[in-house]
Design a protein around this nucleic acid. Structure first.
Length: 574
DNA sequence: GTAGGGTTAG
């Protein structure tokens, strides 16, 4: 029953008026009632107590209610705003579709010299994470340290989360390094933190592990796993799932399976994480086997499981299996395909060269295609040399997704592949005019717990002379093996020789040269790249695995490649 | 009276 707001007695004492108003708020279900309560607060002088109006704000900005426009009106009318109220508004915006407003409010907060507290940062950083606002994150990071919240576990976790999902490997690692788990001395500090009861709980562990998964930080992930075991922390279903996912994304499927088997109860998400593991490792048949095994164990696949299994089919070229699964998903499992499932299917058909079928699927699907859908088709055009269609789609893509640097690069290289240099240059300058920049390619390799990072053409590493020397040796051996640099994709006004030089300095090549110098013969080399491996580097890595008799594992943006004896686990289907 | 969690196509 709705509260009878108009009949509030007038002769209440202040305290019981507060109490009654709060209780009315709790039962409030619609805007009309809310507005009446708002009016009542002002009319009866309750506004001098911060609690009723704070509750009103909390309620109005809450996820269920979510009327930020009205909340803002309430907020703007308050003459003495306290930190709680600012925080509440920032939190509201951070969960809304205008997270930018959260940052704007923080700015205002600073202008008003309103004090912030430990609650302020997690809200702000949530807003940053939703916008992938890296620069702002760095500024907030500086504020956190300056104002003495640098050891606050909530602030630190939130920072780690934003850095990890926005691909800022370096910042995330710096943060990890600051976390006290690097050596014995640091362990003491870690212990002190525990005594001070700021030890990580399950939620903190989950977000750290998830950051490791994003970054491919196997060493740190293992460290956290050991910490969990040593401290007898209970592995709840979410922690189990993210632990598996960490090993999966760090390239250690064996360990992922070990964790899975040890779980007390294998939840649907744990199964899905394993199936997805096989998918991104290119082991399509294993993924299918586990999909069956899961159902035999009495677990029904959900929508996310289907994304994983369709990804598996797409990466392994299992076209018929994928088509059948997509069909049975609707008929037998009664699941409505989402845009992600259509994305998988476009990718599956496109990679297999069935471009027309992929295009038809997009045209006939009941959902509006998003940039990712067009991106999948564009990728297929690139692989199969459908340049005309590629140009059409590329043009659409830079219209609908003008802030995405990769799209311009894609379109420009398709023009280049067709010999249309003028057009390619035009696309590039359009990108420049829009103020869009390309995410620089970055490859990382971890040796003895230290991460070494390389950018293309990078000369900043202290051992650079040695690395280039090594690369020249490698290049000589490659040449003897008949390798010729594939410069076709490269753009622009470089002549052939310069192009060769540019391609020789790709980040993954520098990383592999460094890996060969610094590791013993026969050890596996693991490299992580933030973008897709380039075609030429893929060829080179295959050859190196043969010439130097090394296994090389590369995780790129979408999947793992295992190079062994001159071949890659993706069977050149990627 | 306010905080932080997972598996998901490109």
């Amino acid at each position: 029953m709705a509260p009878i707001l108009l009949n509030l007695p007038n002769q209440l004492s202040f305290e019981s008026n507060v109490a009654q108003t709060l209780s009315l708020l709790e039962r409030c279900t619609n805007m009309m009632e809310l507005k009446q309560i708002h009016a009542h607060i002002y009319k009866t002088g309750l506004i001098i107590d911060p609690i009723p109006v704070s509750r009103l704000l909390t309620f109005t900005t809450s996820l269920d209610f979510g009327n930020l426009i009205y909340a803002r009106k309430v907020f703007d009318r308050i003459s003495r705003r306290n930190t709680f109220m600012w925080n509440t508004m920032i939190r509201g915006y951070s969960n809304s579709n205008q997270p930018k407003e959260a940052l704007f409010l923080y700015h205002q907060m600073l202008c008003h010299s309103a004090p912030h507290n430990a609650y302020t940062f997690p809200f702000l950083l949530k807003a940053c994470s939703r916008m992938s606002a890296l620069e702002e994150t760095q500024q907030i990071h500086a504020h956190i340290i300056k104002t003495g919240f640098g050891l606050d576990i909530y602030a630190t976790n939130s920072l780690l989360h934003v850095y990890a999902i926005s691909g800022s490997i370096k910042s995330a690692h710096l943060l990890f390094d600051r976390l006290p788990h690097q050596d014995i001395e640091a362990l003491k500090l870690f212990h002190e933190m525990q005594v001070a009861s700021i030890k990580p709980d399950n939620v903190a562990l989950v977000s750290s592990l998830s950051a490791c998964a994003h970054l491919g930080s196997l060493d740190e992930g293992r460290w956290i796993h050991t910490y969990i075991d040593k401290n007898g922390i209970e592995i709840d279903p979410i922690l189990g799932c993210v632990l598996i996912d960490m090993y999966v994304k760090c390239g250690d499927m064996d360990e992922a399976l070990k964790v899975f088997r040890k779980l007390e109860k294998q939840s649907i998400s744990a199964w899905t994480a394993i199936i997805n593991g096989f998918a991104i490792h290119g082991q399509g048949q294993e993924a299918l086997d586990w999909f069956m095994k899961m159902q035999k164990a009495g677990i029904k696949p959900n929508s996310i499981t289907f994304t994983a299994i369709l990804t598996a089919c797409s990466h392994a070229g299992l076209v018929d299996e994928g088509k059948l699964l997509f069909k049975t998903m609707m008929t037998d499992y009664k699941l409505n395909p989402t845009i992600e499932h259509y994305g998988c299917m476009v990718d599956l058909l496109g990679r297999a060269g069935l471009l027309l079928e992929a295009k038809e699927l997009i045209e006939n699907m009941p959902l509006n295609p998003n940039p990712a859908i067009w991106g999948a088709l564009l990728n297929a055009c690139r692989i199969h040399g459908h340049l005309e269609l590629g140009k059409q789609i590329g043009k659409i893509l830079i219209e609908v997704d003008p802030a995405h640097g990769g799209r311009y690069i894609h379109l420009a290289s398709i023009h280049a592949a067709d010999g249309e240099w003028d057009q390619a240059v035009q696309v590039r300058s359009r990108m420049k005019n829009q103020g869009v920049s390309k995410l620089p390619g970055c490859s990382a390799i971890s040796l003895n717990g230290i991460i070494h990072e390389f950018l293309a053409g990078d000369a900043s590493h202290p051992q650079m002379d040695e690395i280039y020397k090594m690369w020249n040796q490698i290049a000589e051996k490659l040449q003897q093996d008949g390798y010729k640099p594939a410069t076709g994709d490269l753009l622009l006004d470089l002549d052939e020789e310069e192009k060769e030089r540019a391609i020789q300095q790709h980040s993954e090549k520098l990383a592999i040269a460094f890996g060969l110098i610094r590791t013993k013969p026969e050890t596996t080399i693991r490299i992580f790249k933030n973008l897709r491996v380039c075609e030429d580097c893929h060829t080179v890595l295959k050859l190196i695995s043969k010439i130097y008799a090394r296994e090389i594992i590369v995780r790129d943006r979408t999947r793992f490649h295992l190079f062994k004896e001159g071949k890659c686990s993706c069977r050149d289907y990627w």
